[in-house]
Design a protein around this nucleic acid. Structure first.
Lengths: 255, 255
DNA sequence: GTCCCCCGTTTGCTATTCGAGAACAACACT
DNA sequence: AGTGTTGTTCTCGAATAGCAAACGGGGGAC
């Protein structure tokens, strides 16, 4: 858990700060970035042209502005397609979306947060603020609780220590005890639930994908409270979801 | 067109070489990377821990191996969702995939190559080696020729100079003259065609998306030669494609 | 259980090189 | 033309990256 580098490479960190700033601003000029980050113009210029040379940044020679290139999407796409979970689960996610008509996500955990690996919209799917690659807290989402419920306790503790339990809606779980109780319930049930804990008006259910007793991700179905019934025992989405996960787990052994 | 940085930041370049190498290897240990890149162990270690601190690299503390993190997918996803073309075209791409049953792509040009922004698979869609973010040459693809056909001649020349016209199948266009003739034909027709020029057995059609007389991307439909007829005049996919592009172009003005 | 080897990490020191500042160049606007 | 703004180049001093070497620790062989 050595989060901090003992001997950070400061020059690299400057480049990374530039990338972060560019990502936030969308696009920017040399002077803007220099004053924003408290660096000299020449330094900014050297870093940007280096990043450009390697394809991470694109310069619009008309307006003299820089922006991040789609190389990030390229690298991200490669990383994603290399993942076994993705290969196996992706087609099933699409099927489930079609079948249920709702929004379906495949999520994996990285660095204590949940990352969307793919999403598929069914016929009536809600529009959400999620995009492929975006990160969410674990405690306030169905997929997060699905994954946490299968991780060792010390791992869960470490994740809470790292990211806390921020309240995002009135119903978000914000205490460690309540979360562990919920995880217990989740384990018994076999699937996790998010009842307006991340976004008001939104309900999600999620099931963990297991492989040799390790969780390797989760599948979630999201929809408006009006369509996703909170009588979980008789909820039709639950059975569809669990069927999908079962198929994925079986296929996983053939990779 | 200053491709090369005048004063490259060498330290940043080392970090980027590490990233490239990690991307290629999938995952690797310190020693492997050190010998592979001809760097000292401590240097590699410092760079990796710096990249890890900022979330670009993940260390598996079990096996002591490093790999690129999904942060690239995150950044890539943000960049993509910021693009206006994407916002407008994404839902229409899905519709077209459903309607046609084939594989549909949205592509934009960056640095002289075509980058896939999104893909949607119809019922009978072929399995291709493409992934979101991946790059292809322009001259050997339908979307590439669709975009090139609407770029100024000097721009096209520059792109050819930069990337050449490599032959990927027996039918790939490899001469500048033939390409310009083909672009002329494409312009007249309004859509571009790839008849096994990138992959044997695969035919694609593509139409440029225009906005104020600039091309901002292209939509393509790909399928096996058996299903995509090469009698372009009466091809049903062509009209579906053109209808889709028209809708996108109209919606584009309301962003 | 012990030894040994290998690999990741830390340290100290020096050569490298990054970057502030100033000068230069290229526009855009008045 | 003139002036203000912004990107780019240059030079040199100070910051620092990274080599070599030492340390530490985990795993395998026996």
């Amino acid at each position: 858990m050595t989060k901090r580098a003992k001997h950070p490479v400061r020059t690299t960190e400057k480049s990374l700060r530039l990338i972060a700033e560019l990502n936030q601003l969308g696009e920017a000029r040399v002077t803007t970035l220099a004053s924003e980050l408290g660096m000299g113009k020449s330094a900014v210029h050297n870093h940007l042209s280096t990043l450009e040379k390697h394809g991470y940044v694109v310069k619009d020679s008309e307006t003299k502005t820089y922006r991040l290139s789609l190389k990030f999407l390229d690298i991200g796409g490669q990383i994603r397609s290399q993942r076994d979970v993705y290969k196996v689960a992706e087609p099933k996610v699409e099927e489930l979306a079609e079948e249920s008509g709702e929004l379906v996500h495949l999520v994996v955990e990285e660095d204590g947060k949940g990352v969307y690996l793919c999403r598929s919209k069914g016929e009536r799917a809600v529009e959400l603020d999620t995009y492929i690659g975006c990160r969410h807290h674990m405690h306030s989402t169905a997929f997060g609780k699905a994954i946490l419920s299968r991780l060792p306790t010390d791992r869960v503790d470490a994740i809470i220590d790292q990211h806390g339990l921020p309240k995002v809606t009135p119903r978000t779980i914000t205490s460690r005890e309540a979360l562990f109780e919920e995880l217990e319930r989740t384990r018994e049930r076999g699937f996790a639930v998010d009842d307006e804990e991340r976004l008001e008006g939104l309900r999600c259910i999620a099931a963990p994908i297991k492989f040799d007793s390790d969780v390797i991700g989760a599948i979630s179905v999201s929809g408006p409270t009006a369509r996703i019934d909170d009588d979980w025992e008789s909820n039709e989405f639950v059975s569809e979801l669990q069927r999908t996960v079962n198929v994925i787990e079986l296929n996983k052994y053939n990779v």
